[in-house]
């Protein structure tokens, strides 16, 4: 590994901090200064106009006309428009300035780093671009034809869909079960919540290494169904991945269900208890309809994470065994 000296490193760090934090605020202060200057000069001009009301002096300071206007009235409306809307001291102008200014940092980087590459990617997918080729030419939907006739892609695509469906079911079942347990009046309630939530803190890549060790070394030493290791075979690797992702993600979804379950009014549950409903009936007819909204959120969250899974798969099996896990690259 090439070592760079301390000075260069420091320069990089300072440059980045400057680019991110300082620069926008300097610009901000510059524009505010600018606005104030214009404001002050406008007031001064007003004052000087009032002080010497003679028409001779006014003609002297009249600026050179670039655009010919019919009369004074038209010039004032057309010329003033830009000034009034963008640079003037009026409330509207201030509003407009702040609008552009506040929007620019995040919208600019969003456009630059997400939107333009996205559009660019769509365009490139219709061309024969490679890393080496500098001027790609348009080939239409040829790439899509190639990829959908490729056995590997279709296989891993169907695998991904299958895995996502199973994964969503598994995560939601585990999370809802845990949530139902943890909302009971246990003594160590808070400890349980924190413990179930903990796996969520570990990132996908590190998580994959941990579980690779567990599957390949720890569980395999037990023998039985764990030997040979679960993740060496295509079908059981899918199961292994589902276990890993459920372990990681169930805690987070559990938190959402807990928040929903705590909002269920207790008097409804008690009323149904008096009416003679057993635990299952209470769950089915009272609790589930009342927390339906949180199911939607949980489904959405699990769906997006299931489809976007990459790090864990890489570190768990390196995309193997033989393109059977969701890895399109």
């Amino acid at each position: 590994m090439k070592k760079i000296d301390f000075k260069t490193k420091l320069a990089h760090i300072l440059l980045s901090i400057y680019a991110i934090i300082v620069l926008p605020f300097i610009l901000l202060s510059k524009v505010i200064d600018w606005g104030i200057n214009i404001f002050v000069s406008a007031i001064n001009k007003d004052r000087s106009d009032k002080n010497d009301g003679s028409t001779e002096t006014k003609k002297e300071i009249e600026p050179v006309q670039i655009i010919k206007f019919k009369d004074d009235k038209e010039r004032s409306t057309a010329g003033k428009y830009l000034y009034d809307v963008w640079f003037g001291p009026s409330y509207t102008a201030q509003n407009n300035r702040v609008f552009v200014y506040f929007l620019l940092p995040s919208f600019g980087s969003f456009i630059l780093f997400v939107f333009i590459p996205f559009i660019n990617g769509l365009w490139l997918s219709l061309t024969d671009w490679t890393i080496i080729k500098t001027d790609p030419s348009f080939i239409g939907l040829e790439n899509y034809k190639t990829i959908f006739s490729d056995y590997k892609f279709v296989y891993s695509f169907t695998r991904t869909v299958m895995y996502s469906v199973l994964n969503i079911l598994a995560i939601n079942l585990v999370a809802f079960g845990l949530a139902l347990l943890v909302v009971q009046k246990f003594k160590l309630k808070n400890l349980y919540r924190a413990a179930f939530f903990m796996p969520n803190l570990i990132g996908g890549l590190v998580l994959g290494y941990i579980w690779q060790f567990i599957f390949n070394k720890a569980l395999e030493s037990l023998g039985g169904i764990f030997s040979p290791s679960l993740i060496t075979n295509g079908n059981t690797a899918l199961l292994g991945l589902i276990i890993v992702i459920s372990w990681q993600y169930a805690g987070y979804i559990m938190m959402i269900y807990i928040a929903a379950l705590q909002n269920v009014p207790q008097d409804l549950v008690e009323a149904s208890k008096i009416d003679g409903a057993n635990a299952w009936q209470r769950l089915k007819t009272i609790t589930l309809p009342l927390i339906a909204q949180s199911f939607t959120i949980a489904m959405f969250l699990t769906l997006t994470t299931s489809f976007k899974q990459f790090d864990t798969v890489v570190s768990l099996t390196q995309g193997g065994p033989a393109t059977k896990l969701p890895l399109w690259l």
Binding site: H12, L15, S16, I20, S109, I111, L112, F113, V114
Partner: peptide, 14 residues
């Protein structure tokens, strides 16, 4: 570079 990553994160986090 660090600033490249940070700028990208601002875009993706926005």
């Amino acid at each position: 570079t660090v600033h490249g990553v940070i700028l990208a994160y601002i875009g993706f986090g926005a």
